[in-house]
Computed example of a mutant assay.
Amino acid sequence: MPEQVLVAGETLVDFIPDRPGSLEDVSGFERRPGGAPANVAVALARLERPPLFWTRVGADPFGRFLEGTFAEYGVPDNFVERDADAKTTLAFVTHDETGDREFSFYRDGTADTRLEPGRIDDETLTECEWVHAGGVALASGSSHAATLDLLERAAAAGCTVSFDPNLRPELWPDEETFADSVGDALAHVDVCLATAAELAAIGCPGESPTEAARAVIDRWPVHTVFVTRGSEGAVALAADDAPWPADAVDQPGFDVDAVDTTGAGDAFVAGSIAALRDGRPLEDATRFANAVAATAITEPGAMTALPTRDEVATLLEEHRSAG
């Protein structure tokens, strides 16, 4: 049986401010590795399931920094491409007193927008049980076509395909273009992980997160939808054709001291993939993913705050004892 996970998409360098505030007011930043798919890849490695990671970095100091980071976390470099003609993407992060954040991207023609279709061969896909990608890669460059090509071929190869729309409005000309691109991706997806706002942006609003999830399942061949709700936890819905029992669950979040929410959604994605691959039912998988995300926000940074299985188990046990 195939056992590998392949994560695909952007990697970049986040510059984290030394204090809350707007970019014009913050004077100091700390360099951190980031990018949603990169965070997912490292999170899976931290959860003792290192995946393959297909991405592209510049042949510059920031690219070498990211390559070293992946090596440090045990993410294989088989599909980490180096682009001699493009720079590595940068993002400046700002956050408020609660840890909520906004991004300013420097991503015009950068390496991660230059993924090319066909770079992942058919033999690799036959070895993959699961393939995951995100919406930022659809926003510009050849990475748009490369991502759709990968998802279509992964679905044809029998992989479980998951997708995170990951809406970043500043990267898209308008919401309609975002919705169309995500819709093209969801035509090949089994598991969608999104916020209610992202589902509304692709034409699937609902009076409740469960209704929004149902709208996705009714419109595309998606069989499972997770709707993340920040500190309130997450809702998940699995249809009858899901490979795990059909269910609708609403799992509350964990009460932790939030320091930085950057990467929380990516931690949730990794937790969901890891739990479902472990054979956990949907309710347990959602609770586990919530715990991974909650643990990740107790430290600054995205990738550097991702927890181990032992750290997640500690949080679950603490709340089990308290409850």
Score class of each variant (00 low, 15 high):
2 P>M: 10
11 T>C: 15
15 F>L: 15
22 S>M: 12
34 G>S: 11
34 G>K: 04
36 A>T: 12
44 L>N: 05
47 L>C: 02
50 P>K: 07
54 W>K: 01
69 T>N: 13
79 F>S: 04
82 R>H: 10
82 R>S: 12
82 R>G: 04
85 D>Q: 15
91 A>L: 02
92 F>H: 05
96 D>K: 04
104 S>Q: 14
108 D>V: 13
110 T>R: 05
112 D>Q: 12
112 D>M: 09
112 D>G: 06
115 L>T: 09
122 D>G: 03
122 D>W: 00
124 T>D: 07
127 E>M: 00
128 C>S: 09
129 E>Y: 00
131 V>D: 10
131 V>Q: 08
147 T>W: 00
148 L>M: 02
151 L>Q: 02
153 R>I: 06
154 A>D: 04
159 C>H: 01
161 V>G: 00
163 F>H: 05
163 F>V: 13
165 P>F: 02
169 P>Y: 09
170 E>Q: 14
170 E>A: 15
178 F>E: 07
183 G>A: 00
183 G>Q: 08
185 A>I: 00
185 A>K: 00
192 C>G: 07
193 L>N: 04
200 A>P: 07
201 A>N: 03
202 I>Y: 02
203 G>L: 07
205 P>N: 09
205 P>S: 09
207 E>S: 10
208 S>N: 11
216 V>C: 05
219 R>M: 07
219 R>K: 15
221 P>Y: 12
228 T>S: 09
230 G>D: 10
233 G>W: 09
237 L>C: 06
244 W>H: 15
245 P>M: 10
248 A>H: 08
255 D>Q: 12
255 D>W: 03
259 V>D: 10
264 A>Q: 12
265 G>R: 07
265 G>C: 03
273 I>T: 11
277 R>I: 07
279 G>P: 09
281 P>Q: 13
281 P>L: 01
282 L>N: 10
285 A>Q: 10
293 A>L: 06
302 A>K: 05
303 M>P: 07
309 R>P: 01
309 R>W: 07
312 V>K: 01
314 T>I: 08
314 T>R: 14
315 L>N: 00
316 L>I: 04
320 R>I: 02
